[in-house]
Nucleic acid binder design. Sequence first.
DNA 1: CATGGTTGTTCCGTTATTCGGAACATATAT
DNA 2: ATATATGTTCCGAATAACGGAACAACCATG
Lengths: 243, 243
Amino acid sequence: MSSIDKALDALFLLSERGQALRLGEVAHGLGMPRSSAHRILAPLVKRGLAEQDADGRYRAGFALMALGLNAASREPLAAAARPVLEAAADELGETFFLVVARAGRLVVLEKAEGNGFLRAAPRLGAGVPVHATAAGKLYLAHAPEQVTVDEFTRYTPATPRSRRALDLEVERARSQGYATNLEEWQPGLAVAAAPVLAGGRLYGVVALATVSARFSALGLTTITRRVIHAAEGIALRIEGRTP
Amino acid sequence: MSSIDKALDALFLLSERGQALRLGEVAHGLGMPRSSAHRILAPLVKRGLAEQDADGRYRAGFALMALGLNAASREPLAAAARPVLEAAADELGETFFLVVARAGRLVVLEKAEGNGFLRAAPRLGAGVPVHATAAGKLYLAHAPEQVTVDEFTRYTPATPRSRRALDLEVERARSQGYATNLEEWQPGLAVAAAPVLAGGRLYGVVALATVSARFSALGLTTITRRVIHAAEGIALRIEGRTP
DNA sequence: CATGGTTGTTCCGTTATTCGGAACATATAT
DNA sequence: ATATATGTTCCGAATAACGGAACAACCATG
């Protein structure tokens, strides 16, 4: 394991914990002595990726934010999707978000939250499983080379058990033009998603997430129509035809 | 120079260039042979901090965005400032932003852009010099221990030449309760700023930036009143009294 | 005030890792 | 077919990482 790996471990550790950590806590979290942790952290602090408060505690640094915002601003897809997602979220009062494949994994690129007290609130940049989500089914249907199904963790009783069971869902998603996920990932969570197809390529997936009860109340046709409409709206903006 | 340093150099290089870079370009940018650059990049790619496109080119990775957004969400000051800055920007049609000190340097934490065709558009997370900005003067006046004046680069003819000249400006900023920067950093750019003081501590600086011509047209009293009002508004929110 | 425990930091001989030229595999252009 | 470019792998020499121990500063408690 290279020292770069260890430094990145430290970086992610600080980012995940969120709060300021003692040197000993970092060392314990990385499984190394304090002196080693100190040496690892020094370059991170020098670049502003980690910071030390007045008590010497370490926390995620500010330069991290600059790097991240820089990366985000260079994602034209997120910019194209934002107004469409917000319009859809305002209209239905439910959470809409955009999922894309990056390095074989599915991540949340942009979102617009609904206004319910109980609402889906995905974290930007967070990963979602392929085999237990509507977005995963659509990616397997339209661009299987962009994602990898490495595991079949059973999150709930409704989670697809095997590749064969999943493929049935994938085939249905392809023919229908949308996919659903009824508590296959998280209990109580229902999702409908539609592909953002432009120029024959899959750019991402628009998803609506809500509580199962409200999903049934709204009705499948209402939901799918709105999700497909949003996905097509984003596809139009990608192609430059922004009416 | 540690290998961690080199990896971070590579990370910043990819972030700054913005576009996908060939391995040779990265190697040249870091001043090392291609094989070394390749080895340095491997752990970054593994963690998603760097990515490779279909042609093998390297660019800033998606995980960077997740880390940055995570760090940003943990900045309560930015959350407190956003609505205040947006209200001010809407009212005057000029760009308002919040500058804070992090690790001895001044950085832009949050912003709300004006609506002019020619308008100030600072990059989030970007650094600004201490000796040639209104924000720098206010930090030197209220919390000199949080910033370091390491250089006196002469950006324009109006840039303060020496520590003595700067101290005069700092003293004026302290007594007036606000600071100005009339083309001391960038030609044509005029800024007025006010301190966000809460509980006797300086949390940051609110600044209004615009073209010099509009600065004069609006008038100093109008501008300072609005900037001070915004800074006080943020201070109130920090102290928990959010009316 | 002394003391025991904690903190972050520095030191240094041993050891494991990084280094980079060269060779390789692949793709595109001449 | 040849030439030049790419990203990747290999391996002995050179170097930087390792971590226990010692240090300095702090804060409780006796």
